[in-house]
C-alpha cells in the first residue's frame, strides 16, 4: 500500500521472514491434502487392479477368497446416514426454533450450552453406550447405528440452523405478526422462506459428518458382510466401520482394499460437504445482501 512512502528503517527483513513463515504454514494445508490424495490412491491401486470395476459393483466381500466388493458398505454408509438424518433433522430444527423463537432470554444460553455439551462427548463414548446399553434392547443394526449417529449430528445441525434462522430480519417477522399471524404462522411465513436454503446446507453438513463417523458406527452396526437390505433392524456395515473393524487382521491386499474404501469415503464426503457449504454460503450471502 504505502510502498512509495516507506518510513520503516529496520525490520523489512524480519517482515519478509515472518510473511514467509505465514505463507509456509498456509501451504501445509495444500501439502497435506495433496499427500492424502496421492499416497492413499497409490496404496489403493493393488486392489483396484485385482478387482477391476468389480470393486465398486460387486456385493461380495470375502477377504479369505480375495474378493472385495465395496457396494454393501457404500449402501450401509448411505443408509445409516439417511436414518440418522431422518431422526436428527426434525429434532434439530425443533430445538433451533425453540431457542430462537420460543425460549425466554434467560433460557437461551443454557440451552445452547446443553446442545454444545452433546458435541463434546467423544464418539467412542457414544459407541460404548450404544453397544453396552442400547444394543441389548435394540440389537446391533442399521437402526441402532442410525440412532447413535443422529445423537452425534444433532449438535452441528442445531447450531448451524440456529445461525441461519437468526438472520431472519426482524421487520419480516413483525410484518407477519402485524397481519395477525400466530407464532407458528409467522415461522411458516417469515422464517421458513428466509432460511430454507441455509437449512438444507446445514442438514447436508450433518449428512457428511454422519457418513464419516467411524467408531460409534463400528461398535453398534453389527458387522454383517455383503448385506444390502432396507430392513433397518438387520445387522449391516458401513465403510468406516469395516475399516476400523477389519484393519487389525488384514493382510496386504485386504489392507489395500480397506484403503480403497477410505479413498471412496473421502471422495463421497468431500462432494457432500462441498455442495453443503456452497448452499450455506449462497444463502448466507443472499440474506446478507438483502439486509443492507
Amino acid at each position: 500500500m504505502a510502498r512509495a512512502l516507506d518510513l520503516r528503517g529496520r525490520g523489512d527483513g524480519a517482515d519478509r521472514a515472518f510473511r514467509g513463515l505465514a505463507v509456509g504454514a498456509a501451504t501445509v494445508v495444500l501439502v497435506v491434502l495433496g499427500l492424502i490424495a496421492a499416497t492413499m490412491t497409490r496404496r489403493a491401486l493393488p486392489v483396484l487392479e485385482h478387482m477391476g470395476p468389480g470393486f465398486f459393483t460387486s456385493t461380495r466381500w470375502s477377504p479369505a477368497d480375495e474378493e472385495f466388493g465395496a457396494l454393501p458398505f457404500v449402501w450401509g454408509t448411505l443408509y445409516t446416514a439417511a436414518i440418522a438424518i431422518v431422526i436428527a433433522v426434525p429434532v434439530s430444527l425443533g430445538v433451533a426454533l425453540f431457542i430462537t423463537q420460543l425460549a425466554p432470554q434467560r433460557l437461551k444460553r443454557p440451552l445452547v450450552y446443553l446442545v454444545d455439551l452433546l458435541a463434546v462427548v467423544p464418539s467412542v463414548v457414544f459407541g460404548l453406550w450404544g453397544i453396552l446399553v442400547l444394543s441389548p434392547h435394540l440389537g446391533r443394526s442399521f437402526l441402532t447405528a442410525g440412532i447413535i449417529l443422529a445423537i452425534m449430528i444433532i449438535p452441528i445441525i442445531t447450531s448451524l440452523s440456529r445461525e441461519v434462522i437468526e438472520t431472519t430480519p426482524q421487520p419480516e417477522k413483525e410484518a407477519a405478526y402485524g397481519l395477525g399471524a400466530t407464532r407458528w404462522e409467522m415461522i411458516l411465513a417469515s422464517v421458513w422462506p428466509h432460511s430454507k436454503g441455509g437449512l438444507v446446507g446445514a442438514v447436508m453438513l450433518g449428512l457428511g459428518r454422519a457418513m464419516g463417523e467411524t467408531i460409534a458406527a463400528a461398535l453398534v452396526i453389527g458387522s454383517a458382510l455383503g448385506q444390502i437390505t432396507v430392513d433397518p433392524l438387520a445387522p449391516g456395515n458401513s465403510m468406516p466401520a469395516v475399516i476400523a473393524n477389519e484393519w487389525g487382521e488384514a493382510d496386504e491386499l485386504h489392507k489395500s482394499a480397506l484403503i480403497a474404501l477410505a479413498v471412496l469415503l473421502f471422495i463421497i464426503t468431500i462432494i457432500v460437504n462441498l455442495v453443503a457449504s456452497s448452499i450455506v454460503r449462497r444463502s448466507m450471502a443472499r440474506t446478507a445482501g438483502r439486509r443492507t
Partner: peptide, 13 residues
C-alpha cells in the same frame, strides 16, 4: 475441504 475429511481417512493417511 480438509475440515470434512473423515477421521478414519486421516488415520489411514
Amino acid at each position: 475441504v480438509m475440515t470434512g475429511v473423515p477421521s478414519v481417512v486421516m488415520g489411514l493417511f
